[in-house]
Nucleic acid binder design. Sequence first.
DNA 1: TGCGGCTATTG
DNA 2: CACAATAGCCGCAG
Length: 588
Amino acid sequence: MDTDALVAEIEASSAGTDGVVALVLDPGAGLGLATASGADRWSVATDDPAGVVDALERALGPRWAVWSSATAVALARSGVRLARCWDASAVHRLLFGGWRADPGRIWARLHGLSTTSLPAVGPVDLFSQPDEADADRPVRADGHLNPGWIAGEWTEAPERFGAWAAVLAEAVQRQRAMVDRVASDEDRPMAVRTAHSESTAELLCAELAVDGLPMDRAAMEALVSSYVGPRPTSPQDAVQLRDARDEQVLRHVPEGVRFDLRSPSQVKSMLRMVSVEVPDTRAWRLERIRDVHPLVDALLTWRKAERIHTTFGYAWLDENLGADGRFRGEWSGSDGAAGRMTASAGLHNMPADLRGGVVAEPGHVFVRADLGQIEPRVLAAVSGDRTLAAATQADDLYAPVAAELGVDRATAKVAVLGAMYGQTTGEGARALVGLRRSYPVAMVYLDAADRAAQVGTDLRTYGGRLVRMGSAALGEPGQPGSMGDREARSRAAARGRYGRNAMVQGAAAELFKVWAVTVRARGRAIDASVVLCLHDELLVHVPVEHADAAAALVDDALQEAAARWAPDRSVRFLADTSIIPTWADAKS
DNA sequence: TGCGGCTATTG
DNA sequence: CACAATAGCCGCAG
């Protein structure tokens, strides 16, 4: 079938179904399509599935339903960009929390099947009797998805393409119904929009992973070299250089005594040998006693260099920086408790000292923008606290809060942050009384989350993300006898802080992603690409002639995002935006 | 070989 | 050293 005929069929079939078209893709063999109802499906055998998708995108521009961002990654590798999608794994994480979101798990959840013993490919065990009749079908007799198809057997015969897409279409239809229920029954009216923006954020993640971050290898190697010296010429040389670095510290202890600088307990012994007694060897602690003994100073200097050497050194560049001057990591659209974006390869914790190596390509610049005081502003929005919302009108939110509380700005800031993090000691805790009096709505919102989390009740963010409170890392609430009373209370308090913060951090992550995908969408017309997302900061790469337009676009996109995310306009959001040649040039 | 602890980096 | 994260190395249990 030619593409025009396919377009016409899909157009006729998907009328009145919100324009959702399910897509499964095998880059080597073809694609499967299905309309939202799953009633109509197509199997297209082609050696250029990306080209077909691109043609459909231009002709129809549907909301593409996909199992995960793997589809978008494959398309991005072929230079094909989708505008909108419904990412079943992203929506699964939104609805149910946690991280694992493979098709088998998504399907099981939507059909009320067990997710603790999902069928798997491989040796037959007691729980999975083979059933020959199941092999040809995407759904087994027991209702679970066929693990073989999940693992890739759907690509083995072209007629399976459409069947697999139809399965996805059904899953997405069920997800949509569940999101609608969250919106209506659980009082999270933004849930559908969140499903859309979180899904589109997955498209952005695919592009971030495929396109990478512009990096100047020579500039970055020069920066690395300034900390750890030149690149070793051989493995033997590497060992020698490492011994030489260690020796700069060890020469401060008596002759013949050896310590492993990489072992905290040995470092503690080493310090004791020169009469420096510390409970641990963290840098902030040693910093204060830097002058006590030259060994301390040498150790701190060594630590800094060792960090670059092991994590952000030549090996790091060799592994992640391509010959095309793009640094690539893996991106996740919604990780952890609160659903923040995360990135691997150190993209989110690269030392600030190395930012000078992140350089725009010739003829390009970066537009860098970060949200100001995003978490307290988000707290004002999601809690509906009118007084705190009024404070967001100020460029510096802490100034009116300080005036209201009758304290200085630093105290006000510590108090607000302490309230959001659940701090119970120190200066912040003392100012909490004033916060409760002046901003009762926001404080009650935080306290309610804290109390629910303490007893193990799951939470939902403003946008509708489920924050699960039953994970093993947090410990089970109310376990009798397994621990002392003090330990149990400490665990409960930790769960409370976790839940309290997840409501704020999670909502901030949702707003951030709406902003990021808005910039992605609007920026396309002027060739502006988001190349880095950092929780409250965007780095956009753009041809120099469009720099001013891109900077204006980023600011406009924030207002657009804020209006869509929180239709109540009483809370003000602002971004600090600059046009810079390297990431190190930002003024903040 | 897997995992918790310690450390450093980021928002 | 509150909240979140990635990542490396060490020491110990299995």
